[in-house]
């Protein structure tokens, strides 16, 4: 199995991470789970950057991008969780459907 391409495994994990994340975003209404789904998806994207860098030889650029994505993603997670706390506090639920009343 030594000639089994590593890239193949990585692609597979990217697709599964992003897919699971996306499905999670589509299917769940719990805000915490939405944030978890987002995290999964973004981790897949970061891996895609690394893979892309590896394939094109621009390893430094890819690593920079991946690190930026991770930092930005952390901020998103923190903000999201803070919002979730506030929403829970105000509305008494974590169901994002309750937030749709924001449009009125």
């Amino acid at each position: 199995m030594s000639n089994f391409p590593v890239a193949f495994i990585v692609i597979l994990s990217i697709i599964s991470l992003a897919g699971i994340g996306f499905y999670c975003l589509l299917a769940t209404r719990n805000m915490i789970k939405v944030i978890i789904g987002l995290q999964l998806m973004v981790k897949g994207v970061a891996m895609a950057f690394i893979l892309g860098g590896n394939l094109t030889g621009q390893v430094n650029l890819a690593q920079t991008m991946a690190l930026t994505v991770i930092v930005a993603d952390t901020i998103v997670a923190v903000m999201g969780l803070a919002l979730a706390v506030q929403v829970r506090h105000r509305l008494g639920t974590l169901d994002i459907k309750a937030l749709s009343t924001l449009k009125r």
């Binding site: 975003l25 939405v34 937030l99």
Partner: peptide, 9 residues
């Protein structure tokens, strides 16, 4: 404009 995240996604 449902305002529901899953539909937007």
């Amino acid at each position: 404009q449902t305002g529901i995240f899953s539909w937007n996604l």
